[in-house]
């Protein structure tokens, strides 16, 4: 009981158990963060299959390198960083990152369900529609909170490229949102 009181953060306890190779603790960490991380992966990769592969790679890495987790930040944030890195690695292996990113044809989703509010699903759909380069930079900068410098290093592009990709992404998203609102109003 004293141990429980000393460890108010259950994540920390789970990490300790994971360090001992406790399979139950690993399972609990997975249960706690898998769905969240799959959402992150899916934002980068579009296809559920790819996202799930990245997700499994992420957790394999998490459990193998759990000793490198300092315990300072939240466990979720640490796992999320690994997930993002894994997603970027996956995209690099797919060799579809920033190849003719501006001219890439992106999938146009039908917008038949605008009666529903602009919920998370819908917003994700809008992000998903972005070309891969726009989307990656937007995800990293706007959602994950990396700086342009960091993004440039991660994606092996210049800061300016990152900035221009971001502004283009914003523009497209803005247009989509306004178009949706317009559609919604007309209805």
């Amino acid at each position: 009981m004293a141990k429980l009181i000393r460890l108010p953060n259950t994540d920390q306890r789970l990490v300790k158990q994971c360090l001992k190779g406790d399979a139950k603790a690993q399972r609990e960490v997975y249960e706690r963060y898998a769905a969240q991380m799959l959402s992150v992966c899916k934002r980068y990769l579009r296809s559920v299959e790819d996202a799930e592969e990245v997700l499994s790679n992420t957790f394999i890495k998490v459990f193998k390198k759990i000793d490198q987790y300092s315990g300072e930040g939240a466990l979720g944030a640490w796992i999320r960083r690994i997930a993002v890195n894994e997603a970027l690695n996956f995209m690099r292996y797919q060799k579809n990152l920033f190849v003719e990113m501006d001219t890439e044809n992106h999938v146009e989703h039908s917008h038949s369900s605008f009666l529903e509010e602009l919920n998370a699903e819908h917003l994700l759909l809008l992000i998903e529609e972005l070309p891969v380069g726009y989307r990656t930079v937007f995800n990293l900068y706007a959602i994950e909170g990396y700086t342009h410098k960091e993004i440039g290093e991660m994606l092996n592009i210049s800061d300016n490229t990152s900035k221009s990709q971001l502004s283009k992404a914003r523009k497209q998203l803005q247009n989509r949102l306004e178009g949706d609102k317009l559609l919604y109003k007309e209805q």
Binding site: A35, L38, L118, N119, A120, L123, A142
Partner: peptide
């Protein structure tokens, strides 16, 4: 967007 998609989850298989 950040706030809109916060806490979004997709159950993995």
């Amino acid at each position: 967007f950040k706030k809109g998609i916060e806490g979004h989850q997709v159950q993995p298989s």
